[in-house]
């Protein structure tokens, strides 16, 4: 009974879109249908087209790789900053927190514009600094044209945007660890690293797990950053992740049926990737 309100919200918020998505994925749904013409049922055609298209698998592999790399880097930097916050004095900690908060609060498009300027091939400050440091090869270098360096730039931006959340969440967890435990460990002769590994990590593990789960979900569906960078430069077909791929398929090319079918792959992927974490989480809670 207590679950009913939660279920009702779930059904209302997700049920209809999911239902529409399921229906559309079996239809030949294009621009004409978007403006009112009745769609034609095509059975599994959309799925067959996608599964036999090697590009979908390339994009999925690329997305998973990007997702794990970004989630891992974000977790490491975020946790390190959280630990730092517990160690420094009040002044530096406040400065750090305000800085993180500003980065977190900055609207995506606004910060992306600034990032684009930073990495601009001809007028960007990054190339300017590198050239002035003596790396003449960076004069007029396009950061986005090469696939690998495109994703390096994208990673820098995505990590920069998500670190504050991880840092704050983990810091909140760390403040709950009793100081006595550290003292006891120190008396026993544990090094700083050993104290972190054997005292801190086990105690804040639930927080770390939840934050990591969120990061994986978020980094899998990263969209804005990639989309904006593709307009600024770079080669679209080499840099599509699953989000931009579905967008280009649906809205760019007017293939809504195919895009709906492709969306199911993301759903499946997200569930598979997060299942492990959900299991661990549930087990942790049982303890």
């Amino acid at each position: 009974m207590l679950l009913l309100p939660a279920l009702a919200i779930l059904v209302a918020a997700l049920g209809y879109p999911l239902y529409r998505q399921a229906v559309m994925s079996f239809q030949d749904y294009g621009l004409a249908q978007q403006f009112g013409q009745p769609p034609e049922w095509v059975g599994l055609d959309n799925y067959v087209t996608l599964v036999t298209d090697s590009y979908l698998w390339t994009v999925i592999a690329r997305s998973i790789l990007f997702c794990f790399a970004n989630a891992a880097i974000t977790m490491v930097i975020g946790t390190a900053l959280a630990v730092l916050m517990t160690l420094v004095g009040r002044g530096p900690r406040l400065t750090l927190q305000i800085g993180l908060l500003l980065a977190w609060a900055m609207p995506h498009l606004a910060s992306l514009t600034v990032w684009q300027w930073l990495f601009d091939a001809q007028y960007g400050v990054i190339n300017w600094v590198l050239v002035n440091l003596g790396f003449d090869g960076f004069a007029g270098r396009s950061w986005l044209i090469d696939q690998l360096s495109f994703f390096v730039v994208a990673t820098v931006i995505v990590v920069w945007m998500s670190v504050p959340f991880v840092a704050f969440a983990v810091y909140a967890g760390l403040t709950q660890v009793p100081d006595e435990l550290y003292e006891a460990a120190e008396i026993d002769g544990a090094s700083a690293w050993a104290r972190f590994r054997t005292v801190t990590v086990p105690l804040v593990k639930p927080v770390l797990l939840i934050v990591a789960l969120l990061q994986i979900i978020w980094d899998l569906k990263v969209f804005t950053q990639i989309f904006v960078l593709q307009d600024a430069g770079g080669i679209t077909s080499q840099t599509n992740l699953i989000g931009t791929y579905i967008y280009r398929l649906g809205l760019g090319e007017g293939e809504f049926g195919l895009a709906a079918a492709a969306s199911w792959f993301v759903l499946l992927l997200t569930v598979v990737l997060s299942l492990y974490y959900v299991r661990v989480l549930v087990r942790e809670e049982e303890l």
Binding site: L10, L18, Q34
Partner: peptide
Amino acid sequence: RALRLTAGLAAAALALSACGGDGDDDTT
């Protein structure tokens, strides 16, 4: 047990919403 179920559901909802927004905006 109920709490745990709710947590599981919420996690599922998060996973679902990861892609619920794509390509289904068509309430014509």
